[in-house]
Design a protein around this nucleic acid. Structure first.
Lengths: 97, 97
DNA sequence: ATCCTCCATCGTCTATCGGCGATGAACGAT
DNA sequence: ATCGTTCATCGCCGATAGACGATGGAGGAT
């Protein structure tokens, strides 16, 4: 869990996630074009996300496809929710939907 | 948001959070006793958590009180959920309560 | 064959993290 | 006044993260 959260704990990677989910086509190039970071840097961030299991990677030809793994992302969210829940463990009935 | 997640993205800090929420009394000493980390290290982690706004700090006398800020924690969880939601943007109606 | 584009990887640099021991301050107890 | 306890902070260090440029490979186009 800490690993997943670590992957998410960088503004650039959050931006990348949003970008990936915004457009159906998800080449590294496109992300680079929007993020104003060096291509190598973006590639690194993508690698981190892939290794964390949050993004799926599909090497077509030289055109790599990156896609958000919605299930994994939801899983992280659920884990965090569970942690919060376990931390509050009944002492905090308040729940902000 | 990345800041909050960064604070959470460390196993020791997650353990600390659980420990803090487990017992009503939350001295640094107690955490040290359970975590098998040096006192200075625990103090550092607590500082990180406090600076991230996830833990509230109350300097009583020489006995410092640390308490989980449930609302802040829930806020992070909500933010993450929102991110996931924005990433799936309607394509994932599944919702695990 | 020769470009050009896209991409991953490597090497480098700097900054930060994560751990520790040591130190000193604040306080209670003797 | 002198301990003992608790805690925050300060160096110090190895390791890692994050950024970049450069390199090279794989394809597509000419």
């Amino acid at each position: 869990m800490a690993l997943r959260l670590a992957a998410l704990s960088h503004p650039a990677r959050i931006e990348i996630l949003k970008r990936l989910s915004a457009s159906a086509c998800c080449s590294c190039r496109e992300v680079v074009d929007h993020l104003d970071l060096a291509q190598s840097t973006v590639s690194q961030h993508l690698k981190v996300l892939v290794e964390a299991g949050l993004v799926r990677f599909e090497a077509d030809r030289q055109r790599s496809r990156y896609a958000v793994d919605h299930a994994a992302l939801a899983g992280v969210s659920a884990s965090l929710t569970q942690l919060v829940d376990s931390c509050c463990s009944g002492s905090l009935p308040k729940r902000q939907d």
